[in-house]
Design a protein around this nucleic acid. Structure first.
Lengths: 114, 114
DNA sequence: TAATGTAGTATCCTTTTATATACTGCAAAT
DNA sequence: ATTTGCAGTATATAAAAGGATACTACATTA
């Protein structure tokens, strides 16, 4: 990968963990709902495929952001929730949401101004 | 694009503006150096190609994050610098850098622990 | 008996992002 | 006279991310 910039590098690490199309939405849902089952998340997140959800959840688990608890019953029951470590992302996610909302507003206005 | 999630959507907007391999590095260099010429940035950012730098700078200009000033001399002289609006990203970039640095540390430790 | 819900895999395809390489035209320095 | 620096563009390709569709096995419900 060859990232030898001291600053950009660390930001890139953060982007790898929370970036992409689906991870922020997953994390916000887990912030709001405490614990969620797989299909509950799938219903909440409009347009996500099972494959994408599985992949993103696995990455978040591997990074220690969320935990995956399996209840050994049939039919299968799996619950996802934020770890304490994952919760340290909360202020960051909030800031990103707020900045994005403002920027979207600004961008809309500048289009209208044309 | 069909992003209809109120939260994830805004975060995604932010990711579009500052995400990717090069934009954070570019922004940190502009935070530290106030104003930079094209080739100065190219020298500072290890491994970037001219094309990538051109593209990322153009996107940042289009989003209103940085400004591009052309001095009409020969050979060409162009300076890039953060706009006031771009500077509103500073706390966010700092938070992302700090979280990423800590996470990289944590991840390294957990690999050692194996 | 057929459909629905559970939590996923497997395979293939498209879109986006990133990289490599060559080229421009002009001026100053070597 | 050739090289270097300036700020890019053009074209082609490689790699990564994201998506569509079909499939698994078991149990409950209609």
């Amino acid at each position: 990968m060859n990232y030898d910039e001291p600053f950009g590098c660390s930001v890139t690490v953060t982007l790898k963990v929370i970036g992409g199309r689906w991870k922020p939405i997953i994390l916000f849902n887990l912030l709001e709902n405490d614990r969620c089952r797989f299909n509950a998340l799938k219903r909440m997140i409009n347009g996500i495929t099972q494959r994408m959800l599985t992949m993103q959840l696995k990455e978040l688990v591997d990074d220690g952001i969320i935990r995956r608890e399996v209840f050994d019953v049939v039919p299968p029951h799996v619950e996802y929730s934020l770890t304490d470590y994952g919760k340290t992302l909360t202020p960051l996610l909030m800031l990103m949401r707020d900045w994005g909302a403002e920027h979207a507003e600004k961008a809309k206005l500048s289009v209208k101004a044309k």
